Simulated assay, not measured.
Amino acid sequence: MYVDTFAAAEPNPAWQGTPQAPTIAFLGRLDEPRKGLMVLAAAIPQVLARHPGARFLIAGRGDAGRDDALAALGEHAAAVTFLGGISDEDKAALLASVDLYIAPQTGGESFGIVLVEAMSAGAGVVASDLGAFRRVLDDGAAGAVFRSEDPADLARVVCDALEDPAATAARRAHATTWVRHFDWASVTNQVEAVYEMAVAAGEAIPVRPDAAWRASRALRLLGEGGDR
């Protein structure tokens, strides 16, 4: 992804919070259990007990998941706004607007591109402690982590992030620099460097011409942004 696309996103005033009424976002398929919406739903009452003005903005498709979350929230559902599926432009605006982005996934995540998007847009990040997420968040330096599938720990970490804005700001500042490691420009340069090393070693370890051609084409396609 291109970091600057999210870094340049304009906040939406309707999605921005205040110290008394912070906004907290979730993005993901609502009816996919691994995305962790129900973990967040279970944590929301505990967050509201300490921050009664907090607002939760939930974006994603999946009516069944939304209905399950509403049932679990009960009287606390008034603090939650379901945005449905949103465009890429609105996703960037949402991440640029909120105080915190929550990634409560329970597994099956090989990378965590949405964390990179959230960091690029300037949101404070709170994520489950999956190995992939910890690596993207520089082992917690670029975002706070909680025990996966533990709503009480999620609520604790969210409240700590809201109640210690200096620590949250420090993580966001680190994320602004750290996230550049995942920009396509940096990734492409790293891939090209590896490819050049492989070519340079060709005399010692011969590379099949068709394999070299495929690698070269893959790099071109990466720069063009997709398959052709």
Rank of each mutant, 00 (worst) to 15 (best):
V3S: 07
A9R: 02
E10L: 09
N12T: 14
A21S: 14
F26V: 03
R29A: 13
L30A: 06
R34D: 10
K35G: 08
L37V: 10
A43P: 03
A43D: 04
P45E: 05
Q46W: 00
Q46D: 13
V47S: 03
A49I: 04
R50S: 14
H51T: 14
P52H: 09
G53M: 09
G53F: 03
A59L: 04
D63P: 10
G65A: 02
L70S: 07
L70I: 12
L70Y: 00
L73R: 07
F82H: 09
G85W: 02
D88V: 10
D90N: 15
L95S: 04
V98H: 00
D99A: 10
I102C: 08
G107Y: 03
G108T: 13
G112V: 03
G112F: 00
I113S: 13
V116H: 01
A118R: 02
V126F: 00
A127H: 04
D129T: 09
L130C: 12
R135A: 15
D138A: 15
A141S: 12
A141Q: 15
A142H: 01
D150T: 11
A152S: 14
A152H: 11
A155W: 00
R156F: 05
R156L: 09
R156P: 05
V157Y: 02
V157M: 06
D160N: 13
D160C: 06
D160T: 08
D160W: 01
R171C: 02
T176N: 10
T176K: 15
F182V: 07
D183E: 08
W184D: 12
V191G: 03
V191C: 13
V191P: 00
V194P: 05
E196A: 15
M197N: 13
A198Q: 12
A201T: 10
W213P: 00
W213C: 10
A215P: 04
S216I: 04
G223A: 13
G225E: 11
